[in-house]
């Protein structure tokens, strides 16, 4: 009996103190995805990677806005978004206290401005993404003189690029002299 009691005393209380004391999670725990909208470039890599479609993006071409949405209710905490994010804007934290009374509280949204195409003046890509690419190119060793030329190219939508390329090729073939065969 005494042995049992001393054994019990030594073992102590196995039950965790939570919710009256904080509950420490183990390292590598995948909890609530923390989104830092200031670091996001709206490149949509996470929305493509998300297997549960908890991350979605929609583009409003008229307003020139792109809206990023995260639904914690649908998230399966797989960390695929964290893996693919080029800027580290989304990181899974150790926070597990996600229960809500109102479903709307499960949503995180962010709105990004689209930049206009330099030739057709229609919005096509997030301004932050274009700036990020230029920043990367500059750091990778692109000379200062090239920056403006690159900016013109990066701020042109694929449609206009294609059109410009076609007209360039047709112009060139028109001015080319007929080939003389021996």
């Amino acid at each position: 009996m005494l042995k049992l009691l001393t054994g019990l005393f030594k073992t102590g209380d196995a039950t965790v103190k939570y919710p009256f004391a904080p509950y420490p999670v183990s390292p590598g725990f995948r909890g609530k995805p923390e989104f830092a909208p200031k670091r996001c470039i709206a490149c949509a890599a996470c929305t493509i990677a998300c297997p549960a479609n908890a991350l979605t993006m929609s583009t409003d071409h008229h307003a020139g806005k792109r809206t990023w949405k995260l639904n914690y209710g649908r998230c399966i905490f797989c960390a695929r978004c964290e893996e693919v994010c080029p800027t580290g804007a989304i990181v899974l934290s150790g926070d597990f206290e996600l229960a809500v009374f109102n479903k709307a509280d499960l949503m995180v949204t962010a709105e990004f401005t689209l930049t206009n195409c330099q030739s057709c003046e229609r919005p096509f890509a997030p301004a932050k993404e274009v700036n990020y690419v230029i920043e990367l190119l500059t750091r990778a060793g692109m000379p200062e003189s090239e920056t403006e030329r690159q900016r013109v190219m990066l701020e042109t939508c694929p449609e206009c690029k294609r059109r410009a390329e076609v007209s360039r090729v047709t112009q060139a073939s028109r001015h080319r002299r007929p080939e003389i065969t021996p």
Binding site: P37, E97, A99, A104, T109, A110, E111
Partner: peptide, 8 residues
Amino acid sequence: LKARHHVE
């Protein structure tokens, strides 16, 4: 948890 909205 509260709903969050960020505008660039």
